[in-house]
Nucleic acid binder design. Structure first.
Length: 105
DNA sequence: CGAGTGACCGCAA
DNA sequence: ATTGCGGCCACTC
């Protein structure tokens, strides 16, 4: 069964160390550009073993409902070498990851 | 099974 | 700059 959820989880599992992706970007790659919100839902209800700390919102901000709060998520990303300006990633374009076509399938 | 909700995004006042 | 609302899919109650 390959639903939207399966696509999202597969994609998130492939985000490399030290890189990030946005909810909207993930949704678009999975075939529903308007379903960024759904990605958040999957993050909440789905497989918790995935690197959800590398999934952020488009402004470079952190996820509101991350377990332990924004501070916890920021700590993980800092540990991966990502720099912050408060709760916002400094230069998002520098860390944003775009998967190759093979990774999407 | 129907209705409500959500770790978002983009546009309109 | 801030507020409100529609849109998508999966999950809960």
């Amino acid at each position: 069964m390959m639903g939207f959820k399966s696509n999202v989880e597969k994609l998130v599992s492939k985000i490399p160390y030290g890189r990030v992706m946005t909810y909207g970007q993930i949704a678009a790659l999975c075939g529903s550009p308007l379903a960024a919100r759904v990605v958040g839902g999957i993050a909440h209800y789905g497989n918790q073993d995935l690197p959800w700390q590398r999934v952020i919102n488009k402004r470079g901000g952190l996820a509101a409902g991350y377990p332990g709060g924004r501070a916890a998520q920021r700590k993980y990303l800092l540990a991966e070498g990502i720099e912050f300006d408060g709760n916002v990633i400094k230069n998002i374009a520098e860390y944003l990851w775009w998967p190759k076509d093979e990774a999407i399938k």
